[in-house]
Design a protein around this nucleic acid. Structure first.
Lengths: 195, 195
DNA sequence: GCAGAACGATGAACTATCTTAAGAAAAACG
DNA sequence: CGTTTTTCTTAAGATAGTTCATCGTTCTGC
């Protein structure tokens, strides 16, 4: 049996739910174990699930015309993840969502989410707040990509998520920060030498 | 008297409202005329309003440490705009929102929006759908910034918003596409010569 | 615990994009 | 309208970031 308390706290932090509604919500999610390298979402298929990470790490990425992989999003414990375009609009995904470690997730499928939102005020509010927070977060990320140099973006990420950095493969972090793995390697090393 | 029909259609396209609720919604917005160069939102002040453009054009931008302006977002007729981080979380803004032309907007203040969302199911749904669409849109934009070259980003923008391009100052478009005005100028000219 | 694969470091050559500067064109506004 | 201000173009030199190729290291699955 998995411990759902991080999930419950995460949700209550967005909007306080009555215990019946929390019960409704948690039973709407399934616990799923996922092996490293396993794909949860693939281009061409509609993203059926919204995912919450109980344990482990994921990244979502696209592959461009030249065959290069670009990490769009990370998720470790207590983070949410999907291909939002695909999930929200129920259109075919363009992203891969892949486990970076053996992981345990909670997932809710789109149809169940719709039912909850239509049937229940508090739960509708929860999903609204989640969408608002996502939008605000993505807007911040766009600003940082528009205004900062590669090195500044790296420094910001390290400052914000010092623990996460340790767990991510460097090539994935590099492409998330919009630079090559080689250049990230150089940045890190220049930093060490300066000391 | 302004014609609100584009606004009404825009809203109904997101979620169908009963006529009473549409009435509630429209009366919650104020019509405001704005002169070119006028600022609707400024860094340091909390963004009080969510803005819908009835007529005219706007851009939001930040100014970085070196004094360079970066356009984050455009809005012409039938688009929505704010500093979402500031508006959603009611924290001080980091962006300017400036009129590029003499314009007419509809605006709703944060408190009124909260009241509508708390009092009314349909209207809460509307704002949820808006947030979901914003998040999905911003996610697409991040992907395009991560995977495309400067020229590809420009081509995509022209293909998507051919009319809008005509109306925007080139310096604003350049910074929105994450390049210098000079480089955008070069791209456009190379294109003409190739013909 | 070992073999094979995946990952990270390094350096040299290269290129996309930026910077600076100055003049030309266009637009704003009295 | 005319003039003042803003925006756009051009071009040369500079640089942040990429590409490619290679090698050592670290995982990882069996």
């Amino acid at each position: 049996m998995e411990d759902l308390s991080p999930f419950i706290e995460n949700v209550n932090h967005k909007t306080r739910l009555s215990s019946e509604n929390m019960e409704r919500l948690t039973t709407a999610f399934q616990v799923v174990k996922v092996k490293r390298k396993q794909l949860l979402i693939q281009p061409g298929f509609v993203a059926k699930y919204r995912i919450y990470v109980l344990k482990g790490a994921f990244h979502s990425y696209v592959i461009d015309d030249k065959g290069n992989e670009h990490t769009i999003q990370f998720a470790v414990e207590d983070w949410w993840l999907s291909d939002y375009n695909s999930y929200i609009h129920q259109t075919p995904a363009t992203q891969f969502v892949e486990a970076l470690e053996n992981s345990v997730i909670l997932q809710i499928d789109h149809q169940t989410e719709q039912q909850l939102k239509n049937a229940n005020w508090e739960l509708a509010t929860l999903f609204r707040v989640m969408a608002e927070h996502s939008a605000a977060y993505l807007a911040r990320r766009i600003v940082s990509n528009l205004t900062q140099s590669a090195e500044e973006r790296y420094n910001e990420f390290v400052a914000k998520y010092p623990v996460v950095v340790q767990r991510l493969p460097q090539y994935a972090l590099a492409s998330y920060l919009n630079m090559t793995r080689e250049f990230l390697s150089k940045i890190r090393n220049d930093k060490v030498r300066k000391k």
